[in-house]
Design a protein around this nucleic acid. Structure first.
Lengths: 202, 202
DNA sequence: GTATGTATACTAACCAGTGAATATACACAA
DNA sequence: TTGTGTATATTCACTGGTTAGTATACATAC
């Protein structure tokens, strides 16, 4: 029954997402994913070459939605860039207080597959984080900050640090603490920019 | 042969450490650990109740040595507290450039066992990070910084963020970037302290 | 009547944990 | 000095369950 082929594949990815994120990659069997998707393992293997393929698809499906969420939180926040970036961390803290929250799927996968550096899933995770970094870099560059890449990387470091620490301690307040560090660093960079501008003629 | 019992147990933990850190918890079987330790699985189960027990012992054995290493890097660095804390990150970057480096064993275990929040290994990891945080807090308190706990947590966030990001991108320079953020945050806190002091009489 | 898609049933390997037996060291009695 | 019991330490062989991936056949749509 050649149903457009999209629904089935999407259904598998959705089931895989829920299980892989909640339980971890190695703990979830392909049979479990198939069962959750309401079909047999053999059908799953018709749509995906291997489990590694499925893992990569799971992360690829999370790439854009995650970034869109961050952009929305940023756009909807009031205030300047420091407050808007800090708002990302406050919203993240709210998410992290949900009982089903289990950290960042990209980072957890990279930790689980640390012994396979070239794994497709790790490359997808790395690309995802680079997109976030580049968005921040462009945002800071537009503000005239002198080293926007360095500042963007520091935001990323505090973001991923939040994921790791909150997952370990199950204490979402660390995310607000990270948000305050981020705001301080951005405000410092903005102040440097202003003082430099003041020294220019005119 | 009741050899003091210490060497065998230590040998098992050493073998487990090497394998769990390098390959991950779930990927390594108890048989592999026993083989690496030069004994049978049944002997291993004489010294440890379960694999979970062994995992906990693996992390417990890493607790003090890791902290001692950080303290040594801090103590051996020249300059004030900002430079000394930054030195931890520079030394960490050097370690991370070693090909066998695979991130932070505590964080990777917490990521792998994220679906078992009460697991002994996770509690050991959380306690380890708390010890680091408390050391930093005490250090900052001795410098008269007004909110030493907040600053200590921000250092921890940048430390663990470094582990996560460098593991994903395999680019140790992020650790130096984190070190610069840490130095800036500490210097800012010290400056606030000084300016407050200056306002005091005398 | 051929592409696409799905299911049943299977393989071959792996894995955490156990039952039963054995070997060694050492304390203590003869 | 020699015999013996006991706690410690180790091995072999096994179980019951799980897992990624496949061979083969069948169904549906166009």
């Amino acid at each position: 029954m050649p149903r457009p082929s999209e629904p089935t594949r999407e259904r598998i990815i959705k089931a895989a997402s829920a299980l892989f994120y909640s339980e971890g990659i190695r703990r979830v069997s392909v049979d479990e994913v198939a069962a959750k998707a309401g079909l047999t393992k053999r059908t799953l293997y018709y749509h995906f070459r291997s489990k590694d393929d499925l893992v990569a698809a799971y992360l690829a499906a999370r790439d854009q939605p995650n970034l869109v969420l961050f952009r929305t939180w940023f756009a909807d926040a009031e205030g300047g860039v420091p407050a808007k970036v800090e708002a990302i961390f406050r919203n993240l803290a709210r998410s992290a207080r949900h009982p089903k929250w289990k950290g960042c799927g990209f980072l957890r996968t990279s930790a689980e597959l640390a012994n396979m550096p070239g794994h497709p899933a790790i490359r997808i995770g790395a690309a995802h984080k680079k997109k976030f970094e580049d968005w921040m870099r462009a945002t800071f560059a537009a503000e005239g900050i002198s080293d926007p890449l360095q500042l963007a990387r520091q935001v990323l470091l505090l973001l991923d640090g939040s994921f790791a620490v909150v997952l370990l301690h199950r204490d979402a307040s660390y995310m607000e603490t990270a948000g305050e560090a981020v705001r301080a660093l951005i405000e410092m960079a903005l102040a440097k920019r202003r003082s430099r501008k003041r020294q220019l003629p005119g």
